[in-house]
Nucleic acid binder design. Structure first.
Length: 876
RNA sequence: GGGUGCUUAGCUCAGUUGGUUAGAGCGUCUCGUUUACACCGAGAAGGCCAGGGGUUCGAAUCCCUUAGCACCCACCA
């Protein structure tokens, strides 16, 4: 074995061997099903660190469960990411000198280009997932836009259409002028920008002023809304004013609406039904009351003013129109004030431009409509699955870790409005609806007969993502996979897609299958850079996980991503962390190297007999580790599990026991070696989910088969027989001597001469002299049967043996004395506080026994320590 | 405006239902070691757990409150 572990030399070969073994595929596994669907990365480029984190989490979980004997399935996949991908390709084309890709290439050609880009990007991504060591079943690879998944999309669309849950409606939606497409409310990113708030009058004879940041939209105002109880405007309610607003005649009715804040501005709000979601709602309310107000579109889908605005404004851009209106208001003296404010505006996540509210005919999913035959709305289904369980069945409850995200999920659902699912881009699932004159056809197959035209729009990408947990299992076919693995067992995702994705998966699954999509969701936080900034292209602080893997190895990266991180909280990523991971991997490698190269006969050891106190200690500690790790994994405490293993591996096993073992071997090599092999092999098993590559490589020294399948050692306590423990006394002496040396600040490098004196044990000690020398790194000066304490020495007692250590070689006496005095004070204080507690009746009567007991123990220890300190001070 | 999270060692963060001198990694300092590992070992320094109040025998942990930071949601026109 080489001195240092160099991951590059092993990882690819190991991954290939895993793939060839076939164990990524659950068809070759027995046991209870355990399924995880990989959140499909967008085919818009390459993986980033967030994906690396997700892959680490999923793979730790899957490998652990597989070793526990579960029939594990991790389905890998990618997402066609409709808008995101098309936007990316168009952006690239614009850069390459094609300013209007859609016009220039047309639907088919552009689609072909996007497809080519997506395929290339997909290839890169899948390679990257392999690089992380992810044990996904590649034979079940899925893609949201492949044939099987598209079939599921159509199936669901038609079902929803037939149930009346999908409908076509004309209403105000978010429109990206740049992208020439709608986007859903969730896809908006709110950005703060400075704006001007104009307070004005529509005309000189209009009775009150209103405020706006968008004067140009006021050309489409058809009402003025005030709060129903606002006394100032009572007398105007219901009246209609005809005004000439900067050259456009408007009819404005004064209406009442609860939503108007009477304290804001003048308490009166200009209503523009066509260009504001809120105003549109008021418009609908009025309509419902039978008091319809007009709806005038003044901004077109091209972002310019429509013919409705008359010759004066038609064709102007929004900005130009605004200037013109403001200029006109100023000129006519209608502008009361102009104020600089900070405004939060919704902009398109993908295209980046500020969206316009425009009334359009679009497809929607009705979330507040009762589902035929179910007596519930989609919204209710979505909520129920998380609160009490689907259909009130606690067995069908989605459990979210950490719990606090449930709350934000509920509040999101409460605010949820009908979901606009149609997009005017081309890259995506085409809406399965055809038109012929007045006829409308919605079906899984093309309609029969001539003259049908398919709806040109495509579906929101989250529509297909919502089906992911079951479309990946071959639904709508009633596949074996579907029966075996549904609902899926576990899911992990970042909190930023809780609403986008988790909510929609719950919606789709409960509606379509009458079943929850998964039992458990683990929410992780976002990775940020060293300064706490998000990783983003625009900041240029992105890190390619593959570069990190190439430099430090996948195991090191995996460990660095999960260590010191808690669920749902953001974590900072920096190279030093990966370095620490690399050191750990290397440590494990070197521990193995030491054991495997120094042991006579490398073989699996089924059971061991501890011979010494050290043996006993390390074995019981190891049992404890197995036990704790089982608990940690059950609670998804990956970080705690990893750190537990690290501490045992490094501090207990490597630094402590290995050193002891070196000495013990001089007396009983065979038995010590057995324990080393015993622990090492089992330790590899525990490590494997976290560091699959390095453990697998070391494992080859023990076994010929891969270690990735069933291993009872993951959870079973090691089998340890009752041992003879004949070295206990020697061990105790060694510990005592080491302690003594530490207490007196003797430099550990210097070999100190110790005198061990006793009656009965003298003979035995002489036999063990070599061992003690080695272990405690001391010289034994003499072993005597009568005890005369030598001049200038200190002593400690082990059982019925007294050990003297000469004080020669001690550091500065006065300084030591001062330190000891200080220490004595501290211990005395501590002791006093303990005594006080222990004499407190309230405490004794109310505290649990264990606590009182442990306190008594501590008191004893403290007293002992105090005595030692006093003894030391007296000597100095 | 509503909500959530965070504030713990120089830095990055753990701390499971309250349980008794508060932990890790990195960094710093001292000493040592080069036949498992300098990607090493033995030690040390460093914390009124953001401030204040309360509940309790006992609080980093529960409650109230103040401040700062971050994020999410919402129709301040």
């Amino acid at each position: 074995m080489p001195k240092a572990y160099e991951p590059q030399n092993y990882e690819d070969a190991i991954y290939s061997a895993w793939e060839e073994s076939g164990f990524f595929n659950p068809d070759h596994l027995e046991g209870e099903p355990f399924s995880v669907m990989m959140p499909p990365p967008n085919v818009t480029g390459v993986l980033h660190l967030g994906h690396a984190l997700e892959n680490s989490l999923m793979d730790i979980m899957i490998r652990y469960q597989r070793m526990c004997g579960k029939k594990t399935l991790l389905v890998p996949g990618t997402d066609h990411a409709a808008v995101a991908t098309q936007a990316r390709v168009e952006k690239n084309l614009v850069k390459e000198g094609h300013p209007h890709p859609r016009e220039e290439f047309g639907r088919e050609k552009l689609l072909e280009m996007i497809r080519a880009y997506a395929e290339q990007s997909k290839g890169t991504i899948l390679t990257q997932i392999r690089k992380m060591g992810t044990s996904a079943d590649w034979s079940r690879l899925a893609y949201t836009f492949d044939e099987a998944r598209s079939k599921a999309v159509t199936e669901v669309f038609v079902k929803m259409y037939q149930d009346g849950l999908i409908y076509r409606g004309h209403r105000v939606v978010n429109w990206s002028v740049k992208g020439q497409s709608t986007c859903s409310d969730d896809e908006l990113v709110y950005v703060d920008r400075p704006a001007k708030l104009y307070t004005f009058k529509y005309s000189s004879d209009f009775p009150f002023t209103i405020a706006t940041t968008r004067p140009e939209t006021k050309l489409g105002d058809t009402a003025v809304a005030v709060h129903p109880s606002d006394e100032r405007y009572q007398k105007y309610l219901g009246q209609t004013f005809e005004v000439n607003f900067c050259g456009v005649s408007l009819k404005l009715r004064v209406i009442a609406d609860e939503g108007v804040d009477p304290l804001f501005g003048t308490g009166a709000l200009g209503v523009t039904p066509a260009h504001s979601g809120v105003d549109f709602e008021m418009y609908e309310k009025q309509k419902a009351l039978g008091e319809e107000i007009a709806l005038i579109e003044v901004i077109g889908t091209d972002g310019h003013m429509t013919t409705q605005t008359g010759e004066r404004y038609e064709g102007l851009s929004v900005e130009e129109a605004r200037e013109k209106v403001v200029a006109c208001l100023k000129e006519q003296g209608l502008l009361v004030s102009e104020e600089e404010i900070e405004q939060s505006v919704g902009s398109s996540d993908r295209f980046g431009d500020v969206v316009e509210a425009i009334p359009l005919t679009q497809w929607f999913v009705a979330v507040n409509k009762e589902i035929p035959g179910r007596g519930k709305t989609l919204k209710e289904l979505m909520k129920e699955a998380v609160t009490v369980g689907h259909q009130g069945d606690p067995e069908k409850k989605v459990r979210i870790t950490p719990e606090r995200f449930e709350k934000s999920y509920y509040s999101w659902i409460d605010h949820l409005r009908d979901w606009c699912i149609s997009r005017q881009i081309w890259w995506g699932h085409r809406i399965p609806v055809w038109y012929r004159g007045e006829e409308v056809f919605c079906g899984k197959e093309n309609p029969e007969g001539d003259g049908w035209t398919q709806d040109p729009d495509t579906l929101d990408t989250w529509f297909s993502s919502g089906l992911w947990t079951f479309s990946t299992l071959g639904w709508p076919e009633q596949t074996n996979d579907f029966r075996t693995f549904y609902p899926t067992t576990w899911m992990q995702m970042g909190y930023e897609i809780l609403f986008f994705w988790m909510a929609r998966m719950i919606l789709m699954s409960t509606y379509v299958l009458d079943e929850i999509p998964f039992k458990d969701v683990y929410i992780h936080g976002m990775l940020r850079d060293k300064d706490g900034q998000k990783f983003s292209k625009s900041l240029g602080n992105g890190i390619d996980p593959i570069e990190v893997v190439n430099k430090y190895g996948a195991d090191a990266l995996r460990f660095s991503l999960i260590a010191g991180v808690s669920p749902g909280n953001d974590a900072k990523f920096y190279e030093e962390k990966v370095e620490a991971g690399q050191h750990l991997v290397n440590k494990l490698w070197n521990i193995s190297r030491f054991v495997l190269t120094s042991v006579e006969n490398v073989q699996a050891v089924a059971s061991v007999k501890p011979q010494t106190a050290a043996d006993q200690w390390i074995l019981s500690r190891f049992s404890e580790v197995v036990e704790k790790m089982t608990l940690n994994m059950k609670n998804y405490e990956f970080s705690a599990a990893g750190e537990l293993l690290r501490d045992f591996t490094w501090n207990d096993f490597a630094d402590w026991y290995l050193e002891i073992a070196k000495g013990q071997r001089q007396t009983d090599k065979e038995k010590t070696d057995a324990i080393l092999l015993f622990i090492l092999e089992r330790l590899l098993v525990l490590w494997h989910p976290f560091m699959p590559f390095v453990t697998e490589e070391i494992w080859k020294q023990f076994e010929t088969d891969t270690m990735m399948i069933i291993h009872p050692w993951v959870t079973d306590l090691p089998s340890v027989e009752e041992g003879e423990n004949k070295f206990t006394f020697v061990q105790d002496c060694i510990v005592a001597i080491r302690n003594l040396r530490a207490q007196y600040k003797v430099e550990p490098a210097k070999f100190i001469e110790a005198v061990i004196v006793h009656k009965d044990k003298a003979l035995f000690l002489r036999e063990q002299e070599a061992l003690i020398k080695q272990l405690a790194r001391i010289n034994i000066l003499k072993i005597e049967e009568s005890a005369e304490q030598p001049e200038g020495s200190v002593s400690t007692i082990v059982g019925d043996v007294k050990i003297f250590v000469p004080l020669a070689g001690l550091v500065d006496g006065e300084k030591e004395k001062a330190k000891l005095e200080k220490e004595r004070q501290e211990v005395e204080q501590y002791l006093a506080s303990l005594e006080q507690k222990l004499s407190n009746r309230d405490f004794l009567s109310k505290a649990p026994e264990q606590v009182v007991e442990s306190l008594k123990e501590k008191k004893k220890e403290a007293e002992k320590k105090l005595n030692t300190i006093i003894e030391q001070i007296n000597f100095l």
